[in-house]
Write a protein that binds this DNA or RNA. Structure first.
Length: 339
DNA sequence: AAGTTTGACAACCGCGCAGGT
DNA sequence: AACCTGCGCGGTTGTCAAACT
């Protein structure tokens, strides 16, 4: 027995642009009865529309708290940073922009920001640090957490070693997906659990304006407070721990001397090492001559458990290139250097 | 002035998930 | 367990006006 066809299949329903009368009818009905039962709403309200269409019209246009007008520079900046962390998860991004809808942000991204960022990154190549994985098999259960991005394709392979760009930001999802090979052992499950926990904390923090609780949870389970004072906590920055994204890509990084071989702040590595340790997989972290190995040898702890866990990892961090980049070059790639 | 292209935004569509039966 | 229902999400398409030729 199949599912009933959506009401949008009905040809006698109104389609296309909404009329002023329809808007008033829908608005009045919702003011009286509330936003419940979209499927039955059109009939009750006397609208010859699909319930989904009514819902969309209300949420994207008629809602009283919709903010009209141009996206401000601050909003744009937040959209860019959020997209870097989350990819095309427009609803989640919209949740951080009061009065803006997911549709509006999606449209704004597609018509303005994607081109703008593509232009800016194509004219300003950046040094290589951590090298993203090639795309690989997806991992059961990860689809929801890491939806595929339309901006990052298999054909984009040469981006891997070139620069950070808007598309590179999608790597966060792809890296996770890439590390998830088809065979799933207990250790991999444990690693995945760690990743899920971090991701959940992140997403909760994104949805929660007052993220003090999440902040404390994260800080209490990591060494981050050694490098990042509590008062400067920004929940967005913590995505790097879980997503495998360069911390400095997001956070106003303090250049520290955690690792004597370079000037890079590896406190994200420390935090995730702790998480891996809790999961009992810390010994799986070191992989050949890469950042994790160096960190381990220096007893500083390695990197993101998922970032380095995968046994078939081929393009691990090029520490040589990393160390060769000067502090000045490194600062060039930061997106948020505090004044 | 007319036709074409481009950009912006609204709306549609299909899919997947969650909860209920 | 299987199915139904409603909803939310993200990708895609449609529409219209402005810009361009």
């Amino acid at each position: 027995m199949g599912r009933k066809p959506c009401c949008s299949k009905r040809e006698d329903l109104n389609r296309g642009a909404w009329t002023a009368h329809e808007d008033i009818t829908l608005t009045n009905y919702i003011h009286t009865h509330g936003e419940i039962g979209w499927r039955s709403l059109p009939k009750k309200a006397g609208l010859n529309r699909c319930g989904k269409s009514c819902r969309l019209r209300w949420l994207n246009y008629l809602r009283p708290d919709i903010k009209r007008g141009n996206i401000s520079p601050d909003e744009e900046d937040l959209i860019i940073r959020m997209h870097r962390l989350l990819g095309n998860r427009w609803a989640l991004i919209a949740g951080r922009l009061p009065g803006r809808t997911d549709n509006e942000i999606k449209n704004y991204w597609n018509t303005h920001l994607s081109k703008k960022l593509a232009l800016s990154t194509s004219t300003a190549p950046m040094p290589t640090t951590h090298v993203p994985l090639q795309k690989s098999h997806s991992f059961p259960g990860m689809e929801k957490l890491s939806p595929p991005s339309q901006n990052y394709s298999e054909d984009d392979g040469d981006k891997h070693c070139k620069m950070r760009s808007a598309s590179d930001n999608e790597m966060s999802s792809d890296v996770l997906g890439g590390m998830m090979q088809t065979s799933i052992g207990d250790e991999e499950e444990a690693a995945l659990d760690v990743s899920r926990s971090w991701r959940q904390l992140l997403e909760e923090s994104l949805l929660d304006e007052d993220s003090e609780v999440v902040e404390n949870q994260i800080l209490s389970s990591s060494n981050l407070n050694d490098s990042y004072p509590v008062e400067s906590f920004d929940p967005l920055s913590f995505s790097c721990i879980d997503f495998g994204v360069e911390l400095e890509d997001i956070y106003p990084v303090q250049i520290t001397q955690n690792n004597p071989s370079d000037n890079i702040d590896h406190s994200d590595c420390l935090a995730t090492y702790n998480a891996a340790e809790q999961a009992g997989i810390a010994d799986k972290l070191q992989q050949g001559n890469n950042c994790a190995e160096q960190m381990r040898q220096m007893e500083l702890g390695p990197l993101d458990p998922l970032f380095y866990y995968e046994k078939n990892w081929e393009d691990s961090v090029d520490m040589t290139a990393l160390c060769k980049s000067s502090e000045e070059e490194y600062l060039d790639i930061l997106v948020d250097i505090p004044n």
